[in-house]
Design a protein around this nucleic acid. Structure first.
Length: 415
RNA sequence: CGGGGAGUGGCGCAGUCCGGUAGCGCACGCGGUUUGGGACCGCGGGGUCGCAGGUUCGAAUCCUGUCUCCCCGACCA
């Protein structure tokens, strides 16, 4: 894409109302637009990042056997009453609305009930099991207080997956498979080293712990205790001697840290299927309860987490796996034809290039390139043309170097 | 929802205490000089000062109400 075709602009200063680093940088660089508290719209660059994260999540969920669906945002009241989750005193962050005839509707905040309801039309035999469905969709939660930029919003993009198994043993195999898939996701996002599987409260309907995937960060909302050798952690909310013993953790081996919950997985047992009267038939023709699991990843929250973590005093520093563009091509001086040639050549190789073809001074191009966090910067100028080379610099590098076309392409291939 | 702070062109701010017809920087438009780390000069467009009442000859400024935003807390992916 050419910079002159991109309608968004960069700002020198962030809006005063934004304090969170992730929101400040994303707004300054033109990635997101704040619609209201806790509600952000994605502009072209931000959408590219969001879609890249979705792609990675999708690939890993598919690889683990998940089948993608898309449930609805509008929710009928009856199925939620069956599981006792309609009442505002039970679930206090519903957004609700009405049909013209007065019928009350819910605006989806999670999808256990509708997924169970939909699945019951198709799967009813042990032969169908196990299976899992997932979706990547906007969720709406009426949080009392939105904060921390993209980290806690009222409308956000979430991947939610629901597994259905025959029994506990099968469920645990499936469960661990998705836990593994989660780490593949975090690894590919560059967060693997600072993400800990964290034991947390499992909820009212299971004696078991749930797992949270906590990204260590000073701005995290959760306090966790990390065993850095075993690479697991325990959330402060269940930090008791009894639980430590149960989990085989020793108080003296744990380090207190702050974490951002970037995902979680729960054992749902048969709570929702039983409540909705949905069962399967086993090989003996007997009616049996499903064993369910649910698995969430805050996709839009990850945009904020990564912006927060991968940034420096000059701006964002996207990992290549999700960067909006791979290369920032800055043309300096009267070099349009040469820049065009390189632009076409790189795009022909399937490389995403943002060509800054504006008639502005070099410093402004470099500053924007750094602020936007594009991994590779290539400069075409009269000087580089005279030498028959290109100037190359990595976002995290200290200095630029002059490379021939072949070396440049090899450098990009290697990364 | 409790406590604290703040709403003035798209963004950052001054002006509010002490009422007199709105200003600066960035961004935007035109002209010119510039051109390797956010250049400079000149000219120009854009704001019913969050909203609604009230006081006053006169309100961004004083009074009342209301909406919104941010921070801390409680709650939560």
């Amino acid at each position: 894409m050419k910079r002159t075709e991109l309608f968004t602009k960069t700002l020198r200063e962030a809006p005063a109302e934004e304090v969170a680093k992730n929101a400040q940088l994303l707004i300054r660089a033109g990635f997101v637009h704040k619609e209201m508290a806790g509600v952000y719209a994605y502009m072209p660059l931000g959408l590219r990042v969001l879609e890249n994260i979705k792609r990675i999540v999708r690939e890993e969920m598919n690889a683990a056997g998940g089948q993608e669906v898309m449930m609805t945002t509008l929710q009928p009241r009856d199925i939620w009453e069956k599981t006792d989750r309609w009442d505002d005193r039970k679930v206090d962050n519903w957004f609700k609305t009405k049909l013209a005839n007065g019928t009350e509707l819910g605006v989806g905040l999670t999808h256990e009930e509708p997924v169970v309801d939909a699945v019951s039309n198709y799967a009813s035999s042990y032969r169908d099991l196990p299976f899992a469905v997932y979706q990547i969709q906007n969720k709406f939660r009426n949080e009392l207080r939105a904060k921390s930029g993209l980290l806690r919003g009222r409308e956000f993009v979430m991947k939610d997956l629901y597994s259905f198994s025959r029994n506990q043993e099968e469920h645990m195999r499936v469960y661990e498979r998705y836990v593994k898939a989660y780490f593949s996701v975090y690894d590919r996002l560059g967060l693997g080293d600072i993400t800990y599987r964290t034991y947390a409260d499992g909820g009212i309907f299971t004696p078991r712990f749930s797992d949270e995937f906590q990204v260590v960060s000073p701005v995290g909302e959760d306090t966790i205790y990390v065993d850095e050798v075993k690479r697991i952690a325990i959330n402060k909310e269940i930090f008791t001697d009894e639980n430590l013993e149960k989990l085989g953790l020793k108080r003296e081996e744990l380090v207190e840290k702050r974490g951002i919950e970037a995902g979680n997985t729960f054992h749902l047992e048969s709570k929702y299927t039983d409540a909705l009267g949905v069962y399967y038939t086993d090989e003996n023709g007997e009616r049996r309860s499903y064993v369910m699991g649910c698995y969430g990843i805050g996709v839009s929250r990850l945009v904020g987490v990564i912006a927060e973590h991968f940034s420096d005093e000059r701006g964002l520093v996207w990992p290549e796996s999700i960067a909006p563009f791979m290369i920032y091509l800055a043309s300096i001086g009267e070099v349009h034809d040469d820049a065009q040639k390189l632009y076409t050549l790189l795009r022909g190789k399937g490389i995403e290039v943002l060509w800054d073809d504006r008639d502005v001074r070099p410093g402004e191009k470099f500053a924007d390139c750094d602020l936007m966090g594009i991994p590779h910067r290539v400069v075409v100028s009269p000087k580089t043309i005279d030498l028959n080379k290109f100037e190359y610099k990595h976002r995290t590098g200290n200095s630029a170097e002059l490379l021939t076309l072949e070396t440049l392409l090899a450098r990009l291939d290697a990364s």
